[in-house]
Amino acid sequence: MMEVSTLTTIAFWAASAMTLGFAAIVVTQRDVFRAAIALAGSFLGVGILYFVLSAEFVGVVQILVYVGAISVLMAFAVMFIQDIASGSRPAQGRLVGVAAALLIFAALAFAVYNTTWTSMDELGTDQVAALTEGFYEVGEGDDIQISLTEPTDDDAVVVENGGVLVDSTGSVGVLLVREYMLAFEIIGLLLVASLIGGLLLMRDRKESEPEKGSASV
């Protein structure tokens, strides 16, 4: 479970280099549009990183939402607000920024290296098999049993699940609508609120002026 092939390690370091490289371009580039494109590149690197970490569904959602939509939003904003790329000079607090970044990184690195992480090796073989190769849910209603091998009983209602760390899509879907149903619905509400707020903020103000004048009379 914990051992990874050489190819995975190479892919991991390549994806990390891409992510961190583009992120460095975002925070240092003067031309704001180039920073927006570098941000899209960084998001793509993070998506590849998710693929390396066996989280394919999250990786595809990352590319779809971040690169496909949020980066376009940023590029739109840059185009509308800065007609000419006037650039963004770093403010006076550059030294403060570097100090803050280094301190945060040092603190997090210290925390990472001084914690003993429970490893997947501590799991029993049953759990590891369920995680990597899949499990079958036999029976229906309240009487669901887990079986690791294909059940031979013809009458049983069998739901086959792929190994959750290999084929995570179905299991994430089940999680979203069973355990995290409340969060799912609240996020829907949040997106509607953000939609309405955005529309409200972008409303054309010129129409409201004559009304104020007529009301005061």
């Binding site: 494109i37 899209a40 394919e56 569904f57 595809v60 959602v61 590319i63 779809l64 690169v67 496909g68 939509a69 980066s71 376009v72 590029a75 792929g162 084929d167 899509t169």
Partner: peptide, 16 residues
């Protein structure tokens, strides 16, 4: 195993 969603995600890269 997420082939179709991959296609959707990749075609959304053209906008940028």
């Amino acid at each position: 195993n997420i082939g179709l969603l991959f296609i959707m995600a990749v075609t959304s890269l053209t906008t940028l």
